[in-house]
């Protein structure tokens, strides 16, 4: 049985955020009397301490903040601050979040950033506050400053995969695909089994290859690498819709290009770097077939609502369905 209070509100599921924000006030009122009357260490005598309570508090705080229910959010923030202290790094970040959300105009937002700067002056190792600062800068469109901050942060803490992923996202939004690919490779160095990041990297490489001159060796190389990354994400995760969708797109594109290129290089183009030669047409064709078959299976079993096949998002399924239909139409013609 799942406890919805323990699931954090996410962008992809706004109805969950809505449900959480509606639960926030009743949950707040249902706190037992002793919970609010005694300060933290003494309250332990009366109430058992549970992780669930605080995880739920944080999620409800975020949800009511997103739903613009500031008074309720403030009550949760007070609870959390009372329990964990003002100097706790995560509490500081949550307080920053509240200030950002309640800022009326750009001036107030600048004050929040100044406040972050003050905090960082006293303790430069507050990573949570550094991340907040980056998020504010990115939110107001100062991407260059955000990137500068992130680079500084990653110099100090190069194993922070979340920050690498954020930096990659900043670069993608600016069209700097080469840098983004590099950052995503760093993410994969830290977390080599993250199948969604393999797929993300493949997506960025696919976009990158679309901007290159048609049929050039460079495009062929990037595209085949993208295809291989999608293959890796599928290898790490069975029935990965995103992976198969990407595999289908990249192989279709590769087939079109390999047809045009008279003689694709069969050996490695750069022996020093040791990169692989582009795949054979027959292999790409087989992979394309496999992706089509798998996508069709996923769509079929999900729309038949088979047991244990309800986890795919509706929009992704729709896209996959549309692509299969487009494909079959092409063949009929």
């Amino acid at each position: 049985m799942s406890d919805p209070l323990l699931e954090a509100p996410t962008q992809t599921n706004p109805s969950h955020t809505l449900a959480l924000s509606q639960k926030a006030r009743p949950y707040l009122d249902s706190r037992p009397w002793y919970f609010t009357t005694l300060p933290y260490p003494l309250s332990l005598f009366l109430a058992p301490e549970s992780q669930e309570r605080w995880a739920a508090s944080q999620n409800l705080f975020l949800a009511s903040l997103i739903a613009d229910d500031l008074p309720v959010a403030y009550a949760y923030l007070e609870d959390i601050t009372e329990r964990f202290g003002k100097l706790n790094e995560r509490v500081m970040a949550l307080q920053g979040l509240y200030q950002e959300a309640s800022a009326k105009d750009t001036k107030a937002l600048e004050d929040v950033v100044k406040n972050y700067d003050e905090l960082l002056k006293t303790d430069p190792t507050l990573m949570a506050i550094r991340k907040r600062r980056v998020a504010v800068l990115k939110g107001v469109g100062r991407i260059a400053d955000a990137v500068g901050d992130l680079v500084l942060m990653l110099d100090a803490s190069p194993t922070d995969a979340e920050a690498w992923a954020e930096l990659a996202d900043c670069y993608v939004s600016q069209g700097a695909y080469e840098q983004a690919v590099w950052c995503l490779e760093e993410v994969l160095l830290v977390m080599p089994n993250a199948w969604n990041m393999h797929a993300r990297l493949a997506e960025v490489q696919y976009i990158q290859s679309q901007k290159m001159s048609e049929g050039s060796g460079e495009q062929l190389k990037t595209l085949s690498e993208s295809m291989r990354r999608f293959c890796r994400s599928i290898e790490l995760c069975d029935d990965y819709l995103r992976g198969y969708y990407g595999l289908k797109i990249t192989t279709a594109r590769l087939l079109a290009i390999l047809e045009k290129v008279k003689k694709p290089p069969t050996a490695s183009s750069d022996l020093v770097a040791g990169d692989l030669a582009p795949p054979k047409v027959a292999t790409v064709y087989k992979l394309n077939e496999l992706a089509t078959a798998k996508l069709a299976e996923i769509v079929r079993r999900s729309s038949a609502e088979e047991k244990g096949w309800d986890g795919y998002s509706g929009a992704e399924l729709k896209a996959a369905k549309a692509m299969i239909e487009k494909d079959t139409q092409k063949i009929e013609r």
Partner: peptide, 29 residues
């Protein structure tokens, strides 16, 4: 499904794409 803190919750690497540390709260609102 999340059953208790730290148990369940789906893809543990989804956090790399949601990035709660860099939550753009104003954009979300």
């Amino acid at each position: 499904a999340t059953k208790e803190v730290g148990v369940g919750g789906g893809n543990p690497y989804a956090a790399l794409e949601e990035r709660s540390g860099f939550l753009d709260i104003r954009g979300e609102m």
